[in-house]
Simulated scan of single mutants.
Amino acid sequence: MKPNFKTMDKAELRAYVLQNREDKEAFYALMDRLETNAPTKSYPCPNTPENLEVMKQAIREKLENREP
């Protein structure tokens, strides 16, 4: 009997998928859950040299502050 993927939290579902890699239903349930929780913020394309520099600086800061 398969577990109810809807009642599992994300960590439980991920652990189940790792232990049952052949279970495509579980994999798709996890991917749906991750997609649902994905951030939806979007950024416009820079349209001026000033905006391009702001974007470059933001990327540099993000790269410098990321965890290894």
Rank of each mutant, 00 (worst) to 15 (best):
Y43R: 13
M55N: 04
K41C: 05
K56V: 01
T36I: 03
E61Q: 15
E25A: 15
M31A: 14
R14G: 13
C45V: 12
N47Y: 04
A58H: 10
A29H: 02
E12G: 02
P39D: 12
E61F: 11
M55V: 11
L52F: 00
E12Y: 06
Y16C: 05
F5R: 02
N20I: 00
P46T: 04
E53G: 03
P49I: 07
F5E: 05
M1L: 04
R60V: 02
R21T: 09
E67Q: 13
L34E: 12
E12S: 12
K2S: 09
L52W: 00
P46W: 00
N47A: 07
P68L: 05
K24E: 10
K6T: 08
E50Q: 13
E53C: 02
V17E: 09
D23P: 02
A29S: 15
R60I: 04
N47S: 12
E35A: 15
T48Q: 06
A26C: 09
A29F: 01
F27W: 01
R66W: 11
L30P: 11
Y16M: 05
L63D: 05
L18S: 15
R33T: 09
D32I: 06
N47P: 00
C45R: 09
P44Q: 02
V17N: 11
M8D: 00
D23I: 01
V17G: 14
R21Q: 14
M1H: 06
E64T: 10
E53M: 10
T36P: 01
E50W: 03
E64H: 10
A29E: 13
F5T: 05
A26E: 10
A26V: 01
A15V: 00
K10D: 07
M1S: 07
L34T: 04
F5W: 06
N20E: 07
N4S: 05
T7M: 01
E12I: 01
R66D: 10
A29D: 13
M1T: 06
R33W: 06
L30D: 06
N65R: 15
L13C: 01
C45M: 08
P39K: 12
N47C: 03
K10V: 13
T7P: 00
N65C: 06
E50V: 07
A26Y: 00
A29P: 10
K2W: 04
P44T: 01
F5K: 02
N65V: 05
N51D: 13
N65K: 14
K6C: 03
Y43P: 01
P39Q: 09
R21V: 06
Y16H: 13
A15C: 02
P39H: 08
E22Q: 12
V17K: 10
V17S: 13
N4L: 02
D9W: 11
F5Q: 06
Y43N: 08
E67R: 14
N37V: 01
L63M: 12
T7I: 07
E61T: 14
N4E: 05
Y28F: 14
R21E: 11
P3Q: 04
K10H: 04
T7Q: 04
P68K: 07
T48L: 03
E53T: 08
F5V: 04
N65D: 08
T36R: 15
P46L: 02
P68Q: 06
E12W: 08
A11W: 02
E61H: 11
V54E: 11
N37S: 05
A11L: 13
A26P: 07
T7K: 07
Q19C: 07
N37M: 07
E61G: 03
T48G: 05
V17T: 15
